[in-house]
Design a binder for these strands. Sequence first.
DNA 1: ATTCTGAGCCAC
DNA 2: AAACGTGGCTCAGAAT
Length: 743
Amino acid sequence: MTLNIQLNLRSNGDSQTETTERVKAAGNRKKAATETIEEAWERILAMKNNDADQARLREVKAAIQAGTIGRSPADAAKRFSKAEALRMHKELAERQREETLRKMVEDTPDNYELILTREQLIDLSAHLMAEDIVAVDTETTGVDVYTDVIVGMSFSLPNADRHVYIPVDHTDETPQLSLEYVLHTLQPFLQHESIGKVLHNAIFDIAMFRRHGFDLKGVVWDTMTAMHLLNENENDRALGGVGSFKLKDLAPKYLGVASDTFDTLFGKNAQFREVPLDLALVYAAKDTHLTWKLYEFQREHMAKMPTVLEYYQTVEVPLLYVIVDLEANGYILDLDFAKDYGEQLRKRAEELSAELIATLTPFHDGEEPLNLNSVQQMKPAISKAIGKELPNMDAKKTLKPLKGDHDVIAKLLEYKKITKLSGTYIDTLPLKQNPTTKRWHSRFNPMGTVTGRFSSGKEESNDSQFNVQNQPPEARPMFVAPPGKVLVGADFKAQEIRCVAYLSGEPVLINAFLEERDPYAMMASNFYKRPYEDVYKNADGSDTKERKQMKVVWLATLYGMSKYSLAEMLGVDVKAAVQFQSDLFESMPKLNAWIEGNKKFVEQHGFVWTDKQARKRRLPDAKLRLKGWGDPNFGKKNRALRQATNARVQGSSSIQSKVTMLRAHEYCANKPGWSLWSTVHDELIFEVPEDFTRAEAEDIRDIMLNSYAWGDVVTNGTDIEVMKRWGNGVPIDEWFKSKEATE
DNA sequence: ATTCTGAGCCAC
DNA sequence: AAACGTGGCTCAGAAT
């Protein structure tokens, strides 16, 4: 009975809705015939439009009222719709773009010049030679510095007050000078060491000039990398940044100059060589003009931080050339290895997939077949299959502990591991061979992180680059030394701990390195009041549990881990974890004081310094004052306090790595067949002839140990190994011993 | 059809 | 309230 009533009610409700909708529809048809444009706007603007559409619609409405745009005759008979309004917006935007371009050309400043003739170029060349510093930029067909070509270049000459663009390959009918001729004529300027060059993203342009066989020497400033030093948070809008380090985005904020980006002006996939010359001039010359102005602004501000200026000019600027070489040298991949290994992985993944699908399909609801890669589908399916609700699909935290009890989870973990490996590394990397050089090229961004480490990855819209710094051990053997060469890897042994020893002055740490002992075992010995040997290694050579535990707690301390996470990692309760950490701090009071000091400093100043005040890490959230429990800024502030200590350590260590890279590069430059092959934060890898000598190996050791010292007490350490394949190395001594044995 | 976001996982 | 610092890539699914 009850059921019936409910059914009746529902069906009654449904039919009522239908009726209302029929009435509405009839009304709409009537409206279509009679609706005024004002009524139409009211209706359209009341619809569920997203913010962007709403703004567009208002623009169109205003334009119609102003009479700048009208409905097309084809649409006039139909009811005015949102779709039509948005079509009109497109038309409007296009007209505005054309108007912007027209106005840009009309307003071209008098001191912007196109260089089209030999006479003009020769005159320009003379003027360039008379400058002290010049802003330089290239326009190209794309972002692949080994394949794309220069279609024009611009220069800003501050003494002469001229801003020029030299087109060399535009489709414009106006005759242009050839690239070859321009480069040869300007060669004395381009390769002049003491005529300074200022660029925005110099790595790209240096590589472009080199791609055509010319060296751009004398780069003294890069407004992009300098901007990172002046405000590493610039791409973080939450911290007041403009959201990017593009010249066009920086100009309004720092120079008060409005500037449209390439995409906005010319469209997303536009080719600059197809831009008419009058327009190309004002766009390209403005680029170097802005670069010059930004340079002046940056000089003024960095001069107020002499230690930063010194670091920038002696490390970061010369490093730009090192990176060009490093990226251009590139890698060779063993494609047979990749193919065989990939095939193996694919087969196993198919087996696992079939088994998992068979097991899990009964627990999967939904029309579509179960997708093993979908967290959304797999979480409920697995939960049902094992009879336990999972909070997430985190392999390490959630799945691994259940692996022993459930075969399906063990299989899933293997499946995830394999598909990650093939999908991201083994199958994918081989596709990224550069068509021109036939090598693989990574990209190293010296300012890719807020602390000063390199980041590695691909340039926007350049699919052939890849991140070389996160290659797992399984993928590394794909990378092989070129014929006749070997890879020599040298790492900084315990780089960050040595850095902390130096910055904090903690004797327990300093003594560990003075006595050339293992720092974790030293800390454990000090903490447990037991002999060093007892806590270093077990009888079978494995690590002791004391040393392992010390490593965990050490990292927790360095990274500011919470007591909850620490308890979880140690497998003890929170109280025990807190006790452990406070006991540890008591055993190293100077370390504790240093960490507390970092927090105090950042709370007061909103930033911290790296070693020798070379670089600042700005953490404005540290200055937040909390008002009682439940303050919404609690998380932000604590995060900033954690970042303070970490940034000092990571930032200082990255400086050591960069300075060492400079010396390593200089060393390689003087030795035929030697080059820098890669860097992964705390290690440098060299590519060297396979008959390199013991003396040369000693030079590498010297470069690692003595390029950048942590004061005059804490020593550096390094382990050096030799490899034919990345990751399959033998210690340097073994390499020479086995070599001498076979000779 | 293309772009964005979040989850997850690779490195040091 | 949040819980470990710095990155980049892939895939799914949603948004545009």
